[in-house]
Structures are given as structure tokens and as C-alpha cells.
């Protein structure tokens, strides 16, 4: 019981995720700045931003639905934290696992986007509403390729459990190389999930101010931002566990270092893509996801099915 509590509250639960989420934000911002030949923020900047927001007043618009408006950030945070427990991080076994936790994890990672929609919708501000509708539209575009391309390695491993998948790929070295298309597709989908350039359409500040988050302020905004950071960590951990399943059999310290390196790698790729692209328009984004990303995800499934039929037998 006490260990469960320790897992949930401290490690690898809430506190660890907060710290790593803020570090990820710092690395992302610093890298983004350095890639743009700027100085970038000091290391404590994400923490300072968080503290500043927390110390400010929450303003709930008169027109907004106060309970929904207040509840949504908490939902987003809870969902993105819970997802981490089913992902094998630096060991073959995740903290908790059962057959089917893959679906639960993907489901949990979808909840934050839904909370952005609901939070934006119930703010009743025009900018928030447009942002909310946009994040939902975007969800339909990237969620299908993400699900498909995460399904493919699971098919190859013949299991619905992330931990068993990790065990399979640890036993069958170099099988991960077949899933590289899926890796690229899932990074693209993760960019969409985290609403980062080129898919920051729901938050496009020059069009709709801050989109969903326009009316949010103070603690509620701080929680939303924290949940976005944690979602980045959980999303990157999921991708690392599914597509980069090496170093899991190492002793704890070394395995942990490998895990951090994988996270850093994925975050760096996301920062780079945020630097070199312009923002898509909604129609372009949907077209891009259905026309180019989904077929690749489908191709990934085909590759895995063929390998499974020809090789593994």
C-alpha cells in the first residue's frame, strides 16, 4: 500500500513527472532558442513560470460553466499522469500491467485533448470555442494514424500489453528496426497531440489568441500547462517503449540513463520540427494526415503482418 502511494505521488508518479515535464519544457525551449541563434531561458524558467501562474488569481468568466471550467485542467493532469503507470520505462515490466494496457494508455492520452475541447467550449469565449473545435478536428486527423502505427508493433509481438511487448522486443533483438515508419508517424501524431508547430492550429496565437486557453488564468492555466508538459513526457515514453525498446534489460541505473537519453532524443526531434516548419492550416493538416500519414501507418501494419507471417513462424 505504502509503495503504491510512493509510486503514485513521488516516483514515477506526480513529483517525478512534474520535474521531468518542466525539464523537458526547459530543454525544448532552450533548444528551440539555440536553433534560432538565440540565448534561451535559464534552467529555472519553466518552474518560475509555474510559480508565477500559481500565485495569481483564477478568473472564471461570467458566461462560463464554472464547474466544467475548473474541473477540466484537473482531468487533463490526472489522465496524463495515470498513463505513465502502464508504460515500461527503464525496465521490461511497467509498474502495473495487464493484457490490454496498450489501449488504456492510448485512451488516457486522448483524454487531455478532450479536456482541451471541453474546457475551451465551456469558456464560451469565441476564441476558445474556435480553438476547441479545432483541437477536436485535429484529434480525428492524427489519432487514427497514431493508433494504427502503435498497433503494428503490438501485432508483431502478438500481445495487447505494453510490458509484454517490451519483453518480446528485448528477446527478439533488432525487430524494432521494422517499426521505424511507425516511429516517424507517431512522432508526427505526438506533435499534433501536444499542439506544437506545425500542428499548433488550436492555439495559433495570431488567429485566435490562445485558442482553448484564452480564458484560463492563474492556477487553472498552470495546471493545464503542467498537464501538457507531462503529456509530452508520457507520450515520449510511450513512443520510446514501443519503438525504441532497447536497454530495458540493463540494471536500474543504466536503464534509467538510457530511458532519459531516449526521452531527450524524442524531445530534440520535436524541437527541431517545431523550428523548421510553418504552421499548417486546418484543411492542410487534415489533408496531410489522411493523405500521407495514414497510408504510412497502414504500410507499417502491412509490414508487421508480413514479417509476422513469414519470419516469426
Amino acid at each position: 500500500m505504502l509503495t503504491d502511494l510512493f509510486h503514485i505521488v513521488i516516483f514515477p508518479g506526480f513529483l517525478f513527472l512534474c520535474a521531468s515535464g518542466m525539464t523537458a519544457e526547459y530543454i525544448d525551449r532552450k533548444l528551440y532558442a539555440r536553433l534560432q541563434n538565440r540565448m534561451g531561458p535559464p534552467w529555472f524558467q519553466p518552474f518560475a513560470d509555474f510559480m508565477k501562474l500559481v500565485s495569481k488569481e483564477d478568473i472564471v468568466p461570467d458566461e462560463a460553466n464554472p464547474s466544467m471550467f475548473r474541473a477540466m485542467p484537473i482531468f487533463a493532469l490526472t489522465a496524463s499522469i495515470t498513463a505513465i503507470f502502464y508504460i515500461p520505462l527503464w525496465h521490461v515490466n511497467a509498474l502495473y500491467h495487464f493484457n490490454g494496457d496498450l489501449i488504456v494508455t492510448i485512451y488516457l492520452l486522448t483524454i487531455p485533448t478532450l479536456t482541451y475541447f471541453l474546457g475551451g467550449w465551456y469558456s464560451t469565449s469565441l476564441y476558445s470555442k474556435i480553438g476547441a473545435v479545432r483541437s477536436l478536428t485535429q484529434l480525428f486527423a492524427y489519432e487514427v494514424p497514431l493508433l494504427m502505427c502503435i498497433l503494428a508493433p503490438a501485432l508483431l509481438a502478438n500481445t495487447w500489453s505494453l510490458s509484454e511487448m517490451a519483453a518480446f522486443y528485448t528477446n527478439h533483438k533488432w525487430y524494432w528496426a521494422f517499426n521505424m515508419i511507425g516511429f516517424v508517424v507517431s512522432i508526427i501524431a505526438l506533435l499534433g497531440k501536444l499542439e506544437k508547430v506545425p500542428f499548433d492550429i488550436p492555439e495559433a496565437e495570431t488567429e485566435i489568441v490562445a485558442g482553448t486557453f484564452t480564458e484560463y488564468s492563474g492556477r487553472l492555466l498552470a495546471i493545464f500547462r503542467l498537464s501538457l508538459n507531462i503529456e509530452a513526457i508520457t507520450g515520449a515514453s510511450l513512443i520510446a517503449a514501443v519503438y525504441l525498446p532497447f536497454g530495458l534489460e540493463l540494471p536500474t541505473a543504466a536503464g534509467f540513463a538510457v530511458y532519459l537519453a531516449k526521452l531527450l532524443f524524442i524531445i530534440a526531434i520535436m524541437s527541431l520540427s517545431r523550428t523548421v516548419f510553418a504552421r499548417f492550416r486546418m484543411d492542410q493538416m487534415v489533408e496531410f494526415c489522411w493523405k500521407y500519414v495514414s497510408p504510412f501507418a497502414f504500410l507499417q501494419i502491412l509490414i508487421c503482418l508480413i514479417i509476422k507471417g513469414v519470419w516469426v513462424r
Binding site: 536553433l35 534560432q36 541563434n37 538565440r38 508547430v197 506545425p198 499548433d200 495559433a204 495570431t206 523550428t275 523548421v276 516548419f277 510553418a278 504552421r279
Partner: peptide, 9 residues
């Protein structure tokens, strides 16, 4: 158009 790198450079 959300291409801040062009702005910075």
C-alpha cells in the same frame, strides 16, 4: 503563419 524561426533569423 507560425514560422517563428524565419522571424528570428
Amino acid at each position: 503563419v507560425g514560422f517563428d524561426t524565419l522571424l528570428m533569423y
